[in-house]
Amino acid sequence: MSATRHPRHRLDPLLQSPVRFSVMAALASAERLEFRFVRDAVEINDSALSKQSATLEEAGLVEVEKGYLGKRPRTWLSATSKGREVFQEHCACLREIARGVDADRLPVDGS
């Protein structure tokens, strides 16, 4: 047994979905983004983004704000501070994995 664990064990399960990961990537680099902009940047449709952003909001990673620009309704998405931390940690693990850590050579606790 060893305390050394492969970095994949530290990946956030919620962000292992490519869509949710991309949404968080977009939001992590901005203060806030308009819903339609995220939809186009991530290349998904409205309902898929609604669903994924609701999931991320429930987990406390994203904040959804609804408002008006003039008379037009607008929805804004922003990453919470917890969301930014989780995303940074997730990316740090990805970088470790990308550097070529070999899973077979790393002993993993309890697995």
């Binding site: 990961f21 991309s22 990537a25 977009a26 940047a41 991530v42 990316c91 990805l94």
Partner: peptide, 8 residues
């Protein structure tokens, strides 16, 4: 990571 960079 490449996808992250592209989206950002």
């Amino acid at each position: 990571l490449a996808r992250r960079d592209a989206v950002q």
